[in-house]
Amino acid sequence: MIENSLIRQIIDGATHRYAELVQLHQSEVFALIVRIVGNEAEAEELTQDVFLKAYTNLRQFKAKSSFSTWLYRIAYNEAMSHTRRRKEVTIPLDERRIAQVGEQELEDWELSEQEEEVERLIGAIEVLPSQERALITMFYYNGFTTEKCAEITEQSVANIKTKLHRIRKKLYLMVKS
């Protein structure tokens, strides 16, 4: 793979070629972090830290997964520790109410394209716990597969699928209430 040979060259001393890796992934990494932390300035600072950390630990990258998965794992962990340091305001929802949401009503709502619904959905996403916000960003915005989400967050695929399903129901309830 071209990316792996580029990484080899960087490890062997071609530091300037790291710019190519940064160029390749910077927007996607920033997109994920900004949606997790919610603040653009902080997100940019964190994105820088992620690339620096990736460079520092580049020798530990064993190419077992793709470089992007490895990089996103760093980004996810950095963003999570950042959000853990500040107190998050989230809205607790009754688990029974979440479980009661029917599949059909959920899917009907998801097909709605009204701007008003989208606006409400943005508000609901903003008050989701950061882990859940990260998950829906990776799956719906970055377009990652559940397998890749599982690798990044170090959880099982089944767990990711369950969580995504639960988040969809939760968002529906938050938008509707």
Binding site: A31, R35, E44, E110, S112, E113, I136, T137
Partner: peptide
């Protein structure tokens, strides 16, 4: 709907 909302959440680039 999720994609649209997430896209609108932040349009700032680096």
């Amino acid at each position: 709907i999720y994609q649209k909302a997430l896209r609108q959440m932040s349009e700032k680039s680096l």
